[in-house]
Write a protein that binds this DNA or RNA. Structure first.
Lengths: 260, 260
DNA sequence: AAGTGGTCTAGACCACCAT
DNA sequence: TGGTGGTCTAGACCACTTA
């Protein structure tokens, strides 16, 4: 590598040590950019910490501080002696990241997903708002995915999932079924959409017709209902998911705070 | 300071640099000990980072790494230029730490708590298990607190709270009411019990009699039900809380993942 | 043996806060 | 002005992985 080439390379990466923003925050934003534009894809190994330190002209501790925040939120994974990797949603330990259904005796089992249907439609007002699509409603194509989650063959969750067509060109029920992966893993591997944040609203309601039928519940049986919006980098909402959950033998479990 | 005095002081605090456990983890345990035995109480300022580094004979970065984990989970609070403090549950920003009820339009309002009754009783099997009391049931005294949480005067949550008598000697409804503080703040200030971790189980159920009456619900109306166990340091469970939540105009909101 | 992340140090300068 | 936490560096040694 001659000196001209070197200068160009360094110029393309250099951060601004005089900015009011600390270097590790600037670097964190650069990492988000690299992830967003697919320079580092899920499963990929990042450049080593010392390589990144050289590239961005900062100390290795600054690199570690920037990476550390992504590790804490499971976007990146460090493996001693191997490197730092972009996390995969289909690795065992990430399957549970956004899945909270637990049997009443506390046992955790992974659900099996059945895709009932995938249909194209246009977004209504609620969906436009949640996915932050401009309100010119009828213009926005979406997919509506009907899904059933079963634990030990028993249906526990029925969901109505909405994703924007623009980000998921070519999504079909057949493709999902034949892949055999979890939905978030499919978003990640086949469409480059990495879910890193969600919010969920929970309430108690009476089963709707579809849920009652699926769960074999009597009329007026109570259920747990959830509405979730999932985000990728830069706080872009990419999925809305309405679920009804049969909590007779399972429940929604949430842990908060410190593991002393 | 002469050399004898120095040796004695150092001996009382020294960590073991040859142990397989890294120093920052050893130091983290020492911090838990200091918090548990009340050497540093909620609101107190910790010794400065450089003082702790001197005391435990480690580098300042090691101290920062140990403290950082407590800051991340809100047990400690750093204030630039002032010091590091043990967090208070009654500070504005901590009121929401374990409170998730939000109006359907997304607005967050702090609830007003009404203590309906405080009664002494003995623990049943479920409570013994959850509070990890030996099963010699009838021997374990507990307090049962009935509480109503109102948002804008409207009752939203009715709770049945169970705490072990042993840790909360002298707890009375009158004392709670006259204090005007949130329950977790009272645990902390008056009984030295610091809640740092919880788990919560949520399900959809039919309103029980008390909830239906309080919320003015018809028979068979659905509600959100929660069961929560709260822990202090060293994973000691100190509270069990059964709640029913009226989710017609409010819901339970949960945020997970990364704030890019 | 070489390369990676994991831990740790000593010290620097800055921004903030009290006095 | 002096003390605190906030940021950052350069370099050391260790533990782990792969070759």
């Amino acid at each position: 590598m001659d000196s001209t080439e070197r200068t160009i390379q360094k110029a393309g990466y250099r951060l601004d040590p005089t900015a009011s923003d600390p270097l590790y925050k600037q670097l964190r934003r650069e990492i988000v950019k690299s992830l967003t534009r697919g320079e580092w894809n899920p499963g990929d190994k990042l450049p080593s910490e010392s390589e990144l330190a050289r590239r961005y002209q900062v100390g290795i501790s600054t690199v570690r501080s920037a990476i550390g925040e992504f590790v804490a939120t499971k976007v990146l994974t460090r493996r001693q002696g191997k490197g730092t990797f972009v996390s995969l949603h289909n690795e065992q330990r990430y399957n549970y990241q956004f899945f909270h259904i637990v049997r009443n005796d506390g046992a955790k089992e992974l659900p099996r997903s059945e895709i009932v249907s995938v249909r194209r439609a246009t977004a209504d007002e609620e969906i436009c708002d949640l996915l932050r699509l401009p309100r010119r409603a009828r213009l926005h194509g979406i997919f509506r995915i009907q899904q059933i989650l079963r634990v030990s063959e028993i249906p526990i969750v029925v969901s109505d999932i909405v994703i924007p067509e623009a980000l998921f060109q070519g999504m079909t029920g057949k493709a999902i079924r034949s892949s055999g992966e979890a939905l978030y893993a499919i978003y990640q591997r086949h469409f480059g959409v990495n879910i890193i944040r969600t919010w969920t609203e929970l309430s108690g309601v009476i089963a709707n017709a579809r849920a009652a039928r699926t769960f074999g519940l009597p009329k007026n049986a109570p259920l747990l209902q959830s509405r979730r919006v999932a985000f990728t980098f830069d706080d872009l909402p990419v999925e809305v998911r309405f679920s009804q959950i049969d909590t007779r033998n399972y429940h929604f479990r949430l842990v908060e705070g410190h593991g002393t």
